[in-house]
Design a protein around this nucleic acid. Structure first.
Length: 122
RNA sequence: CGGUCCAGCCGGAGUGAUCGCUGGCCUUUGAACCGCAAGGGGAGAGGGCGAGAGGAAAGUCCGGACACCACAAGGCAGCAUGCCAUGCGCAAGCAUGGGGGGCUUGGUGCAAGCCAGGUUCACAGACAGUGUCACAGAAAACAAACCGCCUCCGCGCAAGCGAAGGCAAGGGUGAAACGGCGGAGUAAGAGCCCACCGCCCCGACCGUGAGGAAGGGGGCACGACAAACCUCAUGCGGUGCAAGACAGAACAGGGGAAAUGGCCCGCCUGGCCGCAAGUCCCGCCCGCAAGGGUGGGAUGGAUAGCUCCGGGUAAUAGUCGCGCGGCCGUCGCAAGACGGAGGCGGUUCGGUCGCUCCGAACUGACAGAUAAAUGAUCACAGCAAGGUGCCGCGAGGCAUUGAGACACAGAAUCCGGCUUAUGAAGGCUGGACCACCAU
RNA sequence: GCGGGUGUAGCUCAAUGGUAGAGCGGGUGCUUCCCAAGCAUCAUACGAGGGUUCGAUUCCCUUCACCCGCU
C-alpha cells in the first residue's frame, strides 16, 4: 500500500478549516481532527508535531511513525474526509503500537473508517 | 616481568530480506488544451537503473563568499582584537616552538628566598589622566601613631599621673600596612650601618624578537584594580537567502501628509556659535520650614532633541505613515574549486589584482526537501549491566546465560573556525594501582 | 533561517562590586466566646558552570530555559 505525497495537506488554510469547522477528539497520545469534504476523491491527511514533543530528531520520528500508521490503514479510511493528527507531549516516548492503538480508537469514534463499529476486534 | 583501572584526545555505530518516502536519468502509457484532420501537447500513472543527513548537520559565539541598499574624502563616535617568532589562512583563527607571570609539588636554606618539575594564564599600557579600595583598623596610598618603647622634668612614700621630646622594634585590624632574616648599634630604636636576599635605576653583552643579563649605582622612595573609565596599536559602511530576481493571483491601481513644509544623510568638517534641560551665583515675592514662583548673569550647549540653514528628491512619478489584499510558483539552490600557459586592462612597472579567450592535464567531489524526504517489519550478529560456574595469593580474568536496552543527535544558501552534547568496537598519550622478583 | 530581549522568595517587582530587600501570600504566637482585621515573629531566592577581583546578583566567557520581531 503506497502513500503518495499529494494526499498530504500542505496549506495553512486547510489546517485552519479543519480546526475551525471540523470535529475533534483527544486520546492519550494523539488528537484527531476531522472535516467532511465531498470534493476530495480519497482523503487528505495532515500531521502536526509541535515543540512540546522534543528536539528535531524526536519530532521527525513521531511524524514518520504517524505517516506509517496512515499508510498501513489507507484502505480502511472512508473517502471524503480531511483529517489532522496532532501529537501530544506523551507521544514523545510512545512506540508504534501505542500510537496505532490510540489512532484506531479515535478514528472509530469519529467515524472515518469504512466499517466503523462492525467488528469489535479481539 | 606479568596484569588491571582511571582521565584526556582521536574515532563515528553491523549485515540481509520485504514494504514504503524524496530527487536524478532512461523507458512505457498518456489527461486537460490547440487543431477539420494528421498531429502537437505534456499533467498524472507504471517499470528499470543509480543516489539519499553529521562530526558535531546543534548552539548561532565569530569570520568569509554571495545579494541588495548607501557611499567624494578625511576625522569623531561605536565595536572587535591585543606577549614573541615561524608556518598555514582572504579573514576569523589554528599549529609548533619560545619568553614572562600565577598556582602547586619536590630539593635547598634558620628564614627571606633560590633552583627544578608539573600545571595554568582574555599575557599591550597602572611613570598620561580620572575613579574605586566596603567592614575592621590609629592610618588605605601620603604619609602617619591606637596600644606601646625610651629620655628628661614636675607631683606623689609608692603604684602611678601630668607635661616636653625621641622612636617605629613589638601587639592588634585587614585581601593588602611602605622591604625580609640575622648581626652590629642605641636611652629606646630605625637601611642609621654590615652580610645574604628581594626591589628600583643604568646597563657591557646575548637573542630575529618577546626578553634575558655580568657588572655598577640607590639605602628602599615606587600598593592593587584597565573582564572601572581610559591611553596606545591594528581592523571594521549597513542589512541579511524571510538577501534578492522573475512570473502571476487577489483586493480598494484606496485614503492621509506636505513650501513658515514632507522625507533622507549616525554626528562634524555651513552660520547665528540660536534655543531647551541641567549646574552655580545674585535679586525680588510666597511659606513657620522644607521648598516653590519669577527676573538677571555665568557655565553648559552634547551623550536626548528642536530651530535657522546646507545638500539630495518630487506630481499618472517619488517619499513617509495608515488601511486592504496576498503570503502561492520558478530561480537564487549545489558541476564547482585549484594549478599552468597566452592576450587585454590597471598598477608602486617587481609581484599581486580584475576581465576575456584558447588549450591540456590532474585531484577532489557529486542529499537538495519546502506542513519539509532516510522510515516500518522480520531474521542473524556485536557490545554490555545483571545471574551462574571456573581460574587467580591479589587487582581481577575466562566461560555460559542474557527479558529489556543500543551514544549524542536530523541538512534548509554555501564555506572556514569556536563552543557544547556524546555507552560501540578500535587506536594514541598520561597517571594510578595489584602480584611476583631483586635491592 | 535571521535578528533582538529576559531570567532575583510561592507570585509581582527593587537593589553603586561590600550582610540580598519591599508588597501580597505561607507558618507560629498574641488578641477574640469564634472568625476577620490588627500586632509580634519565622521560613523561603540571585537559572547553571567557569574566570577577573581581597570580595561577583552586579564585570567577562560558556551554557540552559523562556519570550518577542522579521516573508
Amino acid at each position: 500500500m503506497r502513500l503518495p505525497s499529494h494526499l498530504r495537506l500542505k496549506h495553512a488554510s486547510d489546517f485552519a478549516r479543519v480546526r475551525e469547522k471540523g470535529a475533534s477528539y483527544a486520546g492519550k497520545y494523539l488528537v484527531l481532527g476531522v472535516l467532511k469534504d465531498e470534493n476530495v476523491a480519497e482523503f487528505g491527511y495532515g500531521l502536526i508535531t509541535g515543540r512540546k514533543l522534543g528536539i528535531a530528531v524526536k519530532r521527525n520520528r513521531i511524524r514518520r511513525l504517524l505517516r506509517e500508521i496512515v499508510r498501513a490503514h489507507r484502505a480502511e479510511i472512508a473517502p471524503g474526509w480531511h483529517f489532522v493528527v496532532i501529537g501530544r507531549w506523551r507521544a514523545a516516548g510512545a512506540t508504534l503500537q501505542d500510537l496505532e492503538r490510540d489512532w484506531l480508537k479515535l478514528a472509530k469514534r469519529l467515524g472515518i473508517l469504512i466499517a466503523p463499529t462492525a467488528q469489535p476486534a479481539t
